[in-house]
């Protein structure tokens, strides 16, 4: 367990996850209050990754449930194993005949079988799905319910019981209680608003795009051997691109992809032609790319005005390393 908010920050950092204090606070509270965290925010800011990082930091096994439209309780909670039940009845036929062998009437026989009901509706014949598995686990687990907004509104109702009481009710057996209360993360892209009932049971965490400093730290941490100058340029440019009115703003993972790509291309600094050619790594819509290109010259000029030195140097670079390999990688 975590000792303090600072401890959360530190341990997550050890897991290569850089987070601000607000994230650490919520994680700390969640472990203390034993409440689920509902994580919202734009795509690619590290919502799922937070769940993973916390589970690693605490050394808890991670059980992940990916939500999608049409996900129902038999996929998320539990399912009766019909064929196994059937197999057992077949194999136990002799035994069953013994039980009802001397029954005088049909009614009597049915009553006797009825007495044995619980044999066939026992835990033996239940296939636990992620949620039930998280609850029944012998050790404490982290439960990651990913993209819960993709699921149907009805599915939320199943979640309610699990999230508030950490129990699962199976009509035929009864209520199963958690042996250890799992640490639950729910992530949502806000494509649908969750019901108030669900939100009420969770702590809410909104993760936004990181600030310049934080993003730089992330790039430095995740991209091995990147040059400081290049990293700074990339982050600065990404930050200003996000301010444009785009259909989809570049996420952190796209920043990282871009940084790695530029590393592969042996770039030392950002220069206009290179950026233009690689824009498709960070922007995924034609319209966005177009918009960014228009802004780009302005942005790069500003950068050039700040540090006139590298500009001149950059001018010679493309000729030296040659442009063709770049193209071949990207197109």
């Amino acid at each position: 367990m975590f000792d303090s908010v600072e401890d959360v920050e530190k341990k997550l950092h050890d897991q290569d996850y850089i987070c601000g204090k607000n994230i650490a606070t919520v994680v700390y509270l969640a472990t203390k209050l034993q409440k689920p965290i509902l994580i919202e925010g734009p795509a690619g800011v590290g919502k799922t990754e937070l769940g993973r990082a916390v589970s690693r930091a605490l050394g808890l096994p991670l059980i992940r449930l990916q939500c999608y439209e049409g996900l129902d309780e038999s996929k998320a909670l539990y399912e009766w194993e019909y064929s196994k039940q059937l197999l057992y009845t077949q194999m136990l036929r002799d035994k069953i005949e013994q039980v009802i062998g001397d029954a005088a009437t049909l009614k009597d026989a049915a009553a006797r079988i009825g007495e044995q009901d619980d044999v066939f509706f026992s835990e033996r014949f239940i296939v636990p799905r992620p949620l039930l598995r998280g609850i029944l686990s012998e050790e404490r687990v982290a439960l990651l319910i990913d993209e819960v907004d993709k699921s149907d509104p009805e599915f939320e109702a199943f979640l309610l019981e699990v999230l508030s009481d950490y129990t699962v009710s199976i009509p035929e057996i009864g209520t199963m209680e958690a042996k250890h209360i799992p640490l639950v993360f729910l992530t949502s892209n806000d494509s649908r608003e969750m019901t108030d009932a669900l939100k009420r049971r969770c702590l809410h965490l909104y993760i936004d795009f990181p600030g310049e400093e934080q993003e730089l730290a992330i790039v430095n941490l995740k991209v091995d051997g990147i040059q400081q100058r290049l990293a700074e340029d990339i982050v600065k440019l990404i930050q200003s691109i996000r301010k444009l009115d785009l259909k989809k703003a570049p996420s952190i993972s796209e920043t990282l992809d871009w940084a790695r790509a530029l590393m592969v291309l042996n770039a030392d600094t950002l220069e206009a032609p290179l950026v233009e050619e690689t824009l498709n790594i960070i922007l995924k819509y034609e319209g966005d790319i177009h918009k960014a290109q228009m802004e780009l010259s302005k942005l790069l000029q500003e950068k050039g005005a700040e540090s006139p030195g590298p500009e001149a140097e950059a001018g010679e670079k493309p000729a030296a390393t040659g442009t063709p390999p770049r193209k071949s990688v990207l197109h």
Partner: peptide
């Protein structure tokens, strides 16, 4: 929940206090 959360934290840190209240009470971005 907000009260429970504040029990777990020191109240000296204003940002911490703010985040704790927000996480427990404000659920819509």
């Amino acid at each position: 929940d907000a009260f429970a959360a504040l029990d777990e934290l020191s109240l000296d840190d204003r940002e911490l206090f703010k985040d704790a209240l927000r996480a427990t009470m404000v659920k819509r971005s």
